[in-house]
Nucleic acid binder design. Structure first.
Length: 478
RNA sequence: GCCCCUGUCGUCUAGCCAGGCCUAGGACAUCGCCCUUUCAAGGCGGCAACACGGGUUCAAAUCCCGUCGGGGGCGCCA
């Protein structure tokens, strides 16, 4: 069987957004599933709007998601000559023609037609030139574009997701292949490159569906084999409009920076439109490759709703072990100046117990950093809501010093030992253990919520527990 | 305006191609209860959908037609 070759061909006129990332991801899954090749191509023929900075960001986003490519990146801007040669060849074969019209002239004619309520497509003014007119125009205008001659008839193809689709050629105008400045348009460069790199399957967004017949016509004109097409439904925002900047930040790297794991994002994106058809929510990359099939992709537009991503991310974080989480946690701690190299050396064991203590309760890695702060630094404040809820009891300022006295002689600061001491004190004083527990939680973490308190105290240690309790007593007295 | 795609709980979806097993399943979200020192997690339960109208058929979420809704395209952007 022929090798399967697919490609992702972003245009570096913007960052890699979730829609593009999902398209890349489906291409990647398809290639990996069939032991094919995943090729990366940068469509930078729009010189004015493309930038190297954007290209870098796109590659970074793909690497973060784990979408590695087998060939490329190829840059279209380096292949201009080649596109020009193909266009000239079509001219020689009578399948394309020179167009001397300026965009302004065309716009004028179009406006007129539209004003008269008529349907407009390019009027083939330059196709029907007499030899004399042509000569005159050649002399008078230094620039000319090349247009494809769209023959009569219709084009039918079988889309791998949508099924059979037909377009009548009367609805397709003689589109431009080469602009007046000699740069190729998208239709030309995409077909030439897919042809030359032997692309067998074109998997892209639905926004390209109506471009497909034009491109098939081009393949035919070039005598090139026509690849299979699969068009993915576009992701919509919660207002059911096409996802855009209006819906907030949708750059893939934004999610990395907000503390989402690549695997969570991968699952989330893959499961917008695709379902392996079983009652399972979280998959490993290997499982997704194994189960992937274009036939299971839904045709209708999914809506971008972050609640599921949050859930996926929190489940993944709590399932991962400290070892796996370490590199991510380290990166985020560094940003907040909370990282210390000893956490992966002499204090590694302690640090891992901290990760294990906190990981069940965070949605993102950012949440992790917020809850980790009191364990790594003395620089934290009392949460106002927690003060209101747990520190208003007047008895606390007399009770807490007694607890401190109980804790001071302890040799072992194991959770069950500390718990025994605290509960005994509560019983002796005739108050609920909860009163001590909540106040102590506020003392050591500053927050009204935390993992089970005695586990927290064990990780924080005796010295810090006592000094923070003393600090709280002072605070209560003032 | 013209062309193309599409329509199952609020959301992601299973079921549709090969009609009966569907009083439509799961998950997220949400609500309630249990667990509990807090918050999560977990367990149990609730709310909640076949867009609408015609056909075909003994039988339709599943097949056909139409209507309506949503999306995309109609660039010398990609």
């Amino acid at each position: 069987m022929k090798e399967i070759r697919v490609r992702f061909a972003p245009s570096p006129t913007g960052y890699l957004h979730v829609g593009g990332a999902r398209t890349a991801l489906f291409n990647w899954l398809f290639a990996r599933k069939h032991n094919g090749k995943f090729i990366l191509r940068i469509e930078d023929t729009d010189l004015a709007r493309s930038s190297e900075e954007m290209t870098k960001g796109i590659l970074e986003g793909m690497r973060w998601l784990g979408l590695d490519w087998d060939e490329g990146p190829y840059y279209q801007s380096k292949r201009i000559k080649i596109y020009q040669e193909y266009a000239e060849r079509l001219i020689r074969e009578g399948k394309a023609y020179y167009c001397y019209c300026t965009p302004e002239e065309i716009q004028e004619r179009k406006n007129k037609a539209v004003a008269d309520g008529k349907y407009w497509k390019y009027d083939r003014y330059c196709l029907n030139l007499t030899p004399e007119q042509r000569k005159a125009l050649e002399k008078e205008r230094k620039q000319r574009a090349i247009r494809f001659f769209v023959p009569d008839g219709k084009t039918t193809f079988r889309d791998l997701i949508h099924g059979e689709i037909t377009f009548e050629h009367e609805n397709i105008e003689d589109f431009v292949l080469l602009r007046r400045d000699g740069m190729p348009t998208y239709h030309l460069s995409v077909v030439v490159d897919d042809y030359e790199t032997g692309i067998t399957h074109v998997i892209r967004g639905d926004d390209h569906l109506s471009n497909t017949p034009k491109q098939i016509l081009l393949y035919k004109a070039l005598g090139a084999p026509i690849p299979k097409f699969a068009h993915l439904a576009l992701i919509l925002g919660p207002d059911r409009k096409k996802l855009s900047k209006r819906h907030g930040v949708t750059s893939i790297l934004h999610f990395r920076d907000e503390g989402y794991l690549p695997l969570a994002m991968f699952n989330f994106l893959a499961q917008l439109s695709w379902s392996p058809g079983e009652e399972k929510e979280v998959y490993s990359i290997e499982e997704m490759i194994d189960k992937f099939s274009l036939e299971q992709i839904k045709k209708s537009n999914p809506i971008f709703d972050l609640a599921k991503l949050d859930w996926l991310n929190s489940r993944l974080i709590s399932k991962m072990d400290a070892e796996e989480l370490l590199p991510y946690v380290k990166e985020f701690l560094k940003k907040d100046n909370l990282w210390n190299d000893k956490y992966e050396n002499e204090e590694r064991e302690w640090f891992f117990s901290l990760i294990n203590l906190l990981k069940d309760r965070c949605r993102t890695l950012k949440d992790f950093i917020i809850s980790a702060r009191p364990y790594l630094s003395d620089d934290f404040t009392y949460d106002p809501e927690g003060v209101e809820r747990f520190l208003k009891d007047e008895r606390l300022k007399d009770l807490l010093p007694k607890l401190i006295e109980d804790l001071e002689p302890l040799h072992s600061f194991k959770a069950n030992e500390v718990e025994r001491v605290l509960r005994q004190r509560a019983e002796k004083e005739g108050v609920k253990a909860a009163l001590f527990i909540h106040a102590t939680r506020m003392a050591v973490t500053g927050k009204p919520v935390s993992p089970p308190l005695f586990d927290v105290l064990e990780v924080i240690g005796k010295e810090k527990t006592i000094s923070r309790l003393k600090k709280l007593v002072n605070y209560l007295k003032n």
